[in-house]
Design a protein around this nucleic acid. Structure first.
Lengths: 197, 197
DNA sequence: ATCTTTGTTAACCAAATGGTTAAACCATAT
DNA sequence: ATATGGTTTAACCATTTGGTTAACAAAGAT
């Protein structure tokens, strides 16, 4: 592993745990097991190191969404596949959703740089498909964007608000993970139950 | 407005916008229009000021949830009432959900102090009621905690991840708000559609 | 009137933090 | 071997930041 990779991995861990403002360059250096000056030698400054980490995190989430949403399957199949594979992915990258959400909220101006990003999730084809299946009588009438938002919400929220959920519903770490396993199929069931004719 | 109130309101604004780590005592003082030393005179230090703000934010959300969930209505009525009134509340307090979620994630140890808090949202009665209505054949079989999590997710997530949602679905501020207005009723419809027999 | 308590400020301080520098290290080409 | 280029480090620096202090003002209490 190159020094740059060591730094990047360390930065990912620290930034995702503490956020941009809470992260300390020294902590990243310690985590990487190298001298703090190397951070600046490799990544110039904190902002650029952060942007590298954030861009990477975001670009891990985005193409995965596009791949499923823009495939040839039916809406029902896409919903099943998305919830299942997204939850699988997030279970092994648990800090990602809250990290991305937090930093997008804290740096709204930074969001703009992703609207033009080539790997931006693009829901347009799926929205059109939903409209078509409604017109074809396969799906009950529902505003397509609301449906999309419902799916995202049920899938991502428990990970984004993990600590709050665990606190309110009183779940241990194991129980939380078991519940998320169950959600791989239950979310799609709930949604499809609700919109199928 | 007393000086303490001025400080508290300023702190709420700054903490909710920047988070604990990103907030600056000087910025809070400027926002309040008073000298920085007054912050320490009134609230001792940054941590205690933050805890006052956080506790207040949390205790605004919690009783509202309890009131609805522990009332005498049916599950369907509770879902309708909760989504409607919660969204109404959050529309005028848009920073609250992301603030609470962010800080609970960043300070997991801090979460514990709320598990014993008297105003903690307590879902137990509602969970029991869901089980009863399932046994009575009113609601389709579904793990009650999953149902509760679905409702929370659909209601809270769009506000917690506002910037990301606006970016992905390409919504203006107005369109976002219109969609949230629509959600006041559409969430309950979706859920109830899915679980009613 | 003046003493005492409470509220308020400007100036100050020590520690933390992001960032720099100059020297040392090390591989590789000559 | 040694000169050269990139790599790495310890020490250092300037600024920011949370927090303190001592003086001052204002308002009751005596």
């Amino acid at each position: 592993m190159t020094t740059e990779e060591k730094i990047f991995n360390a930065a990912r861990i620290v930034f995702q745990k503490k956020g941009f403002a809470g992260a300390r360059m020294q902590e990243i250096a310690d985590e990487a097991g190298i001298n703090k000056a190397m951070l600046h030698y490799c990544f110039k400054n904190k902002q650029l190191l952060f942007e590298a980490v954030f861009m990477n995190a975001f670009s891990q989430l985005a193409p995965q969404i596009n791949e499923i949403f823009n495939s040839e399957a039916t809406v029902f199949e896409k919903i099943k596949k998305f919830t299942n594979s997204y939850i699988s992915f997030v279970i092994v990258n648990p800090y990602l959703p809250s990290f991305v959400i937090q930093e997008m909220n804290n740096n709204p101006e930074f969001v703009l740089s992703f609207l033009n990003h080539k790997n931006r999730p693009n829901p347009t084809p799926l929205l059109a498909q939903i409209e078509k299946e409604i017109a074809d009588g396969i799906i009950k009438p529902i505003p397509p964007k609301q449906l999309l938002l419902d799916i995202f919400s049920m899938t991502v929220f428990p990970f984004a608000a993990k600590m709050m959920i665990k606190g309110i519903i009183q779940l241990s770490e194991t129980e939380f993970n078991e519940m998320m396993e169950e959600r791989k199929t239950s979310i799609a069931e709930t949604i499809i139950n609700s919109i199928k004719k």
